[in-house]
Write a protein that binds this DNA or RNA. Sequence first.
DNA 1: GAGTGGTCTAGACCACTGT
DNA 2: CAGTGGTCTAGACCACTCC
Lengths: 288, 288
Amino acid sequence: MEPRPTVVPPPIQLRIADDIRMQIERGELTPGDSLPTLAELAERWSCSVGSARAAIALLKAQGLISSGRGKAPVVRVPPRKVIRSSERHQVEKDLAARPEAERAVVGEAETNLNMQISEQEFRSRYDQVEARAALADLFRIEPTDLVLRRRYDSTDRATGLLLSSSVSYMPVALVSPNPALLDEANEPWPGGTQHQLSTVGVEIMTIIDEVTARMPTTAEAQLWGLPDGVPLILCRRISLDANEKVVEVSDAEYPADRTELRFVTPLKPWPKRRSNGGKTSGRQGGRP
Amino acid sequence: MEPRPTVVPPPIQLRIADDIRMQIERGELTPGDSLPTLAELAERWSCSVGSARAAIALLKAQGLISSGRGKAPVVRVPPRKVIRSSERHQVEKDLAARPEAERAVVGEAETNLNMQISEQEFRSRYDQVEARAALADLFRIEPTDLVLRRRYDSTDRATGLLLSSSVSYMPVALVSPNPALLDEANEPWPGGTQHQLSTVGVEIMTIIDEVTARMPTTAEAQLWGLPDGVPLILCRRISLDANEKVVEVSDAEYPADRTELRFVTPLKPWPKRRSNGGKTSGRQGGRP
DNA sequence: GAGTGGTCTAGACCACTGT
DNA sequence: CAGTGGTCTAGACCACTCC
């Protein structure tokens, strides 16, 4: 009944895994190094090969090592991270107000750094679906109202793996004044979504990014070519106009091992009269 | 040599796991439901118990189910997410410019919603350490220069589990004009970091949040009480003054299943003369 | 071909959950 | 107490890598 603090030694798998993890943290094993083979581990710890394998599996699930048939497990080399910055929001807005010639030049391309555009295969698919509860709520429309769904993804021509993937939703009623917006044949649209919306009189004034993460399913891990133990970062972007009305919602996914999202928040200056350039005012309050 | 497209049936573990995952996605199994026992699965798929267990282990690593000794695995119930919004940055800045009486009231407390303050145990530890390469780079100081390291965490008194955890760094040279800032006994400081910095003449004008995610180590999962298959969200916050000088760096971790980070980006309006309220200008460009 | 890890089996023991 | 999943063992077979 009472939570007995019995001193049970942790399972052998954990002890092995922990030992290896500490070797990595201490730098005795560096990225790229090979680990001992399962048989060696089993002998060194006088346990079965199965237990050694379980230890390795744990480290794989934590994203620390990679392994495959025929060769010893390897300390994973963290890939260089691609930075996706929220400053792009303003850049795209500015671009939308420029003349067409300029917009056409600064194409979509740059959204995917680190790789030649010619090595990527882009796809965009448009269709119209019912808003359903969640989206209807955001757009303040009826659940049965139609939204334009635009799915974008690009894959690496060489490997067939996903490089980026996102879905965007806009109420059909909002964009239908310009029928060109409903046709995927017009992709890639020079100037991007913000310019598209400008053609129906919409100016985006605020963008909200909602970020979380989860593990990929087996299928997702395969599509992205994700090693074990790498989470997916989920980012929902909500665009508002001057009246705080939601005009676009977009969901994007990023592999966490090669992605860093960057958000820049400018702060308003303090009111003028408080110059406060002085040295110190000392401790000014605190617990009563 | 040639990549032979042999049609090998996927391993049993994967077929079982996939079947269960699809049942969850179709709604035939809803959060809280119990799964078949290992023995049942083994019989239904005519495989060994070990393979059934491997399937369950995979689903656990994907964060879809929970299991423990003595009872059948259960479809995981996603916890309600705590929203952490970047709008707090401005709120804290405004607060720092208010008189002390006001600052004292609107204490730190609210940073941890969803729980009485009395149920939490706060800890703050200050020390001074060498900047090392990474931080020295950011602060543009020497690697051997000292930085003030402030570690904050709060734990649930009842369960002993971590509720929040962060570390903050500031160059000692920057804050030392006000010695009160070097002493952890002055925590919690009414008005927070932004007010603390104001006492040495620093006004933060820009905050950059860098977000990524990774799987927790075994120890981290235990500290936070994380179930298997839940990533940690990492957020590094860099604060700049009016000269774009880095004045503070802080690293925070959040359990991904309970956390949503929200970033609000206000956009500058288009130049006046372009009213563009009109209907449509049609398709205006595109691929040459 | 020798050695590797991945899959799978069968069975033992233990810790924990329910009734 | 019976039944459950967690740990661990020992061994078979296969796919793959490297020499």
